[in-house]
Design a protein around this nucleic acid. Sequence first.
DNA 1: CCGATATAGTTTACGAGTAAACAAATATGC
DNA 2: GCATATTTGTTTACTCGTAAACTATATCGG
Lengths: 155, 155
Amino acid sequence: MNEGLAEAVRAVEIGPLRQSLGFLLRLAQIERFERFYAAFEGAGLTPGAFTALIVISGNPGIRQGHLGRSLQIKPANLTKMIRNFEDRGLVSRSIPDDDRRAVELVLSEAGRRFLAKHLPDFKKHESEIPGRLTQGEHRELIRLLCKMVDMEETK
Amino acid sequence: MNEGLAEAVRAVEIGPLRQSLGFLLRLAQIERFERFYAAFEGAGLTPGAFTALIVISGNPGIRQGHLGRSLQIKPANLTKMIRNFEDRGLVSRSIPDDDRRAVELVLSEAGRRFLAKHLPDFKKHESEIPGRLTQGEHRELIRLLCKMVDMEETK
DNA sequence: CCGATATAGTTTACGAGTAAACAAATATGC
DNA sequence: GCATATTTGTTTACTCGTAAACTATATCGG
């Protein structure tokens, strides 16, 4: 797919970038996003939107702000995203009586079907080991990223 | 700085995301970009622009397309970026005689000064080990990312 | 109570990144 | 040679993500 990167980089003197975590993360993420879009062509959602659906699914009634903080999605962006979900009938919003500023989110029946349909693809996508990594290195990479972002790793 | 993420995530059931490479890369990159902007406040450039300057510096006369491919910057975006460099007097463009479609890039004297001024900050920024990683883990993370994107690692 | 402050989410205006159409120069094949 | 295709970079129109201002509700201190 993206098999020009390696040579393109090799042909150039990139100096201190070669060991730059930020630069490498950017390249890695570009690669991963491309694969995501290839795997979910036609599903009509971005990686961020997919993660949001997963979290709503696992936390019915979650508040919008809480969802945003856990996924690092900014409020303004989340408003658009949730409206898109509503327009497509995947998510419904409701205002709780104990705090009428807040918005609580649940998957609709269609939303549950949608997610059930695409979750296997997601798991398959995630199980694909990128680049020349071994399976052990793949696991170690995930462990290190978890630790880097200060997130517990998990069984 | 961003010390709400860990709890925000812990408070939520994120299911299969916990081991999702794409999700973790996104979180890690957000964290890294925030630090970059904190370190280079006032320099007036994005991480991508900074990497471009570094590569132009290390490869005087590099062609625009070549630069873009090595950094995974799309042509349209690169046009804007280089114009911005020109407007600020950091980079000059020239059309080579042997291929008058192409554009070759060199740092101006001001560009060299600009980079010389900010490169120490960049190196300091890169030497900061993120999160709770040990130094060895940091190096291993870089190694694994290099391998993931199929880039040689380096002495 | 009630004014000041904080919080939840939305709107608005803008910047960064992209794809697609485009223009110019070069390479190719008959 | 000359039509055709390819390559290089630019322009245009669009989407995505953001900060800042805003609305509505809730809390706090007197």
